[in-house]
Amino acid sequence: MFAIHARYRGRERRRAELVRNSAQALSTLPGVGEFSVLGVEDIAATIDTPSATCDTTMALLSHGDWAVAIGVAPTDEQALNLARTTLGAHARAGQVKVGIRRQKEAAQDVAGAFLMLAHILAKRTPEGREATSLMRSGYNQNEAAAELEISKQAMSQRLQAAGWQAELAGWRLAVRLLEQADAKTK
């Protein structure tokens, strides 16, 4: 089982409202359980699959103001507890910590994959975020270019500059590592 515990680390004045709205939005992602709001800054949920875990983590990293912990354990409750304790009190925005029951090295590998992904996301321009968001939503390059009213070549250039291929490779790596870790916890 998978769980995410995230803490808002931004400077929004109406942080409680932002945290509630984020919890509601993330709860609509496929394979994601309902995010609970824990206090003013924290949210947590169980997640069904490695890919949904990666999608949710990427959404939080894309925002830029969340510290994230992923827990992988045999039960929902164990995964949630592991994510909560892994996050710790001093987690920083853009940081992903991973706790995997009895698999310290695997946890470090997953955290490393997300470190690379966070680096890619942090370097994106607004145009790059817009282009990759459409691709992540299932559009092909031609459809995304039409949606943005740009040429296919311009779309290709935006995706290249945004590191889209590196994001895909990192996402696949993180999914595989989470699958392997989950199999070993059972």
Rank of each mutant, 00 (worst) to 15 (best):
E130S: 15
R136S: 12
R101L: 13
L117A: 08
Q153K: 07
L121A: 05
A161T: 10
A111T: 01
L148V: 06
H119W: 06
R102L: 14
A154R: 12
A144M: 03
Q165T: 07
E149W: 08
Q103H: 09
L168M: 13
A146N: 11
G170Q: 01
L134E: 04
R102C: 09
A154I: 05
I150V: 12
E149M: 11
A107R: 05
E167C: 07
S137H: 11
A144D: 03
A118Y: 00
R101E: 12
W164C: 00
A122M: 06
K152S: 13
L115V: 12
S151F: 05
Q165Y: 01
M155A: 05
A107F: 01
A131Q: 08
T132Q: 08
A111S: 11
P126N: 02
K104G: 08
A166R: 14
A122W: 05
A169K: 15
L148Y: 06
G163Q: 01
E130W: 12
A122C: 05
A118V: 03
G163W: 04
A107K: 02
A169D: 13
R136A: 15
H119R: 10
F114G: 00
G163E: 01
M135R: 15
L148C: 02
K123Y: 03
E149A: 13
Y139R: 13
R101P: 02
A166F: 13
K123W: 06
I150P: 00
S156I: 06
I150S: 05
R124G: 07
M155S: 04
Q103R: 08
E127P: 00
